[in-house]
Write a protein that binds this DNA or RNA. Structure first.
Lengths: 149, 149
DNA sequence: ACTGTTGACTTCAAGCGTGAAGTCAATGGA
DNA sequence: TCCATTGACTTCACGCTTGAAGTCAACAGT
């Protein structure tokens, strides 16, 4: 088995730093100002953009890039805070839908500027347009190889 | 505050998928075959490459992209398994050094092929050389903006 | 020489994520 | 019609990470 050449090692080392360090950086402002993790924010954000602010749990887990188990735990917390209501899908009782309450909407609305500022500061602004396009392309290639959850 | 345009959103969406999904993918084979997380492997790997297989904890935390707190907990586990020995640095008692035992070396040696195969499969092989160089460049730009821990 | 400060590191305690196990509704086959 | 299967989802229990608090050695100032 062949070890990494210099170019490969640079790419891998860069990526692993990104993977291990960037989440914490993105979360810190959100956590401090809104008490939300990045995943929390993504969940709230996606369901806030859904028709009638209602989305199936399975779809939500997929959009927020998390497992159903993780989502269930998170949404349970949100439900206890009155931000989300879960109920069986009227169209098919096998599914569960999550509905974002007005209170939950206010939470994500209040957190959005912080989130946006953080994303710009730590991700978008340091990169050129070409870098951003490359990042989009690379992420797409790497996602294709990721087996469905 | 201006919301993301399409290009920015694609880059951001791609990155966040990468950040949330890739770690799990990289870890699964390691976890199954060696019982190691990615961070576990990085810690063992870096100290295995140090002179005399000995490295200061602070340096090790930096190289493995983790906090001192996280590293301390991980190395404590390793110490209990006989893979690592911690002792005060003879040159300066304020520091602690981690030494990789023969047993610990065997663990990282045995895990390396799995790790390498996984990195190739999920990161390097799906990308062109240009992509890998772009990834290196992008990661460097994004790391520069990350404040020191 | 004494002591406050600083930085490295460990420990604590709480919250979170994970895989496994369990529950339930709908489907499909006999 | 019955029931095994399938897939969505929840819960459980354990291990891990985190930020805060605590400990210690060395340094710097008086």
């Amino acid at each position: 088995m062949e070890w990494l050449n210099a170019e490969e090692k640079d790419a891998w080392t860069g990526l692993v730093s990104l993977l291990l360090l960037m989440p914490g950086r993105l979360e810190a402002p959100l956590q401090q100002e809104s008490g939300l993790s990045l995943f929390d924010y993504l969940v709230l954000s996606h369901v806030s953009e859904a028709p009638d602010r209602t989305m199936r749990m399975s779809e939500l887990a997929h959009l927020a890039n998390g497992s159903l188990s993780r989502l269930s735990n998170v949404v349970k917390r949100f439900e206890q805070r009155g931000w989300v209501v879960r109920s069986p899908d009227p169209d098919d009782g096998r599914y569960t839908v999550a509905f974002l309450t007005d209170e939950g909407y206010e939470v994500v609305e209040a957190a959005a500027p912080t989130h946006l500022r953080t994303v710009r500061q730590f991700v978008l602004d340091p990169l050129s347009a070409a870098d951003r396009q490359a990042l989009t392309r690379i992420a797409a290639k790497l996602s294709v190889t990721i087996p469905p959850p």
